[in-house]
């Protein structure tokens, strides 16, 4: 098709100044729903000390109290700990882990991608390194890291960061390779700009959009990884709650006390759904 005016590519632009794609994405119905879901979960985590009313590790109550017990709106677990408190503090712990690990993984991945952009030999080396990380299934990696460092918060953060490095690295490397061949990059080189300047001023800003989407996607993956590690007992050490560990604890009581599992399940679902919606909204908007 020839350049017909109304297609966005021909740049027949709107009456109003074009909005930044991220803002447009977050203003869409999809983006807003995602934001609300994520904000609810984040608020719950942030305000845990105010909302909980009990210590998450206090075992002084009756065990397996049902929903709506006075003083324990969500009931208690098998050791008599308040489930609302465990849910709120568990959310808090989860959020702490994912907001630390994903940016760390993203940063390392991008650094490797930049390294790969320097020289073809380095590129091959970096690529094989990514392959190496990807060759290990996530949980094997988790078990290996925990075997070395012992269980706790730090190994969880490291495992998630490590697992995310190839995702970000490959994405940025691909973006750099594509943008580098664009005519404006050639124009900058012919215009006398140095390699560093071409990379930082011209190529990176244009290759960065997919990374923002990837961050939202990676956050959802991180929620799962943390959950899986706690579920297997190689995550954050008990009695500190996380969403994964509360869920793991609830399994024997699924038929007798389904509300035990419901809290963490609903929270994880809300968080993952919210982040996915945001990722999707961003993705749609930047592909325009």
């Amino acid at each position: 098709m020839t350049a017909t005016a109304p297609l966005p590519a021909t740049g027949k632009r709107p009456r109003t100044a074009p909005r930044h794609p991220y803002r447009a994405a977050l203003a869409s119905a999809r983006g807003r729903t995602g934001l609300v879901l994520v904000a609810l979960v984040v608020l719950a985590g942030l305000l845990a000390p105010l909302l909980a009313g009990h210590s998450p590790t206090d075992q002084s109550s009756q065990s397996l109290a049902p929903l709506g017990t006075p003083g324990h709106p969500l009931g208690t677990d098998d050791l008599g700990r308040d489930l609302l408190a465990r849910l709120l503090y568990g959310t808090r712990a989860d959020l702490g882990i994912i907001v630390l690990s994903v940016p760390l993984g993203a940063l390392l991945g991008c650094l490797f991608a930049l390294l790969a952009a320097v020289h073809p030999v380095l590129d091959t080396a970096v690529q094989r390194l990514f392959d190496l990380v990807l060759a290990f299934p996530g949980l094997i990696l988790a078990l290996a890291v925990t075997a070395i460092l012992g269980p706790g918060r730090l190994p969880v953060v490291l495992v998630i960061a490590l697992a995310e490095i190839p995702a970000f690295g490959r994405l940025l490397r691909g973006g750099i390779l594509v943008e580098r061949e664009r005519e404006y990059a050639t124009a900058a080189r012919v215009g006398g700009s140095s390699r560093i300047r071409v990379l930082t001023r011209h190529i990176l800003p244009n290759a960065a959009d997919p990374l923002v989407v990837q961050i939202a996607v990676s956050l959802t993956v991180a929620v799962f990884v943390e959950g899986a590690m706690s579920f297997l007992g190689v995550g954050v050490r008990p009695p500190q709650p996380t969403l994964g560990s509360v869920l793991s604890q609830s399994v024997p009581y699924l038929s007798d006390a389904p509300h035990f599992a419901a809290g963490p399940l609903i929270t994880v679902t809300a968080l993952v759904l919210g982040l996915s919606l945001i990722a999707e909204a961003l993705n749609r908007e930047i592909r325009r």
Partner: peptide, 24 residues
């Protein structure tokens, strides 16, 4: 260049684009 759409960095203003060689 041939393609006036592809040869200008979409993230920069016209002024920045023209000043780029001056800077370099």
């Amino acid at each position: 260049f041939q393609d006036p759409y592809a040869s200008l960095n979409p993230r920069m203003t016209a002024g920045e684009i023209i000043a780029e060689p001056l800077h370099a």
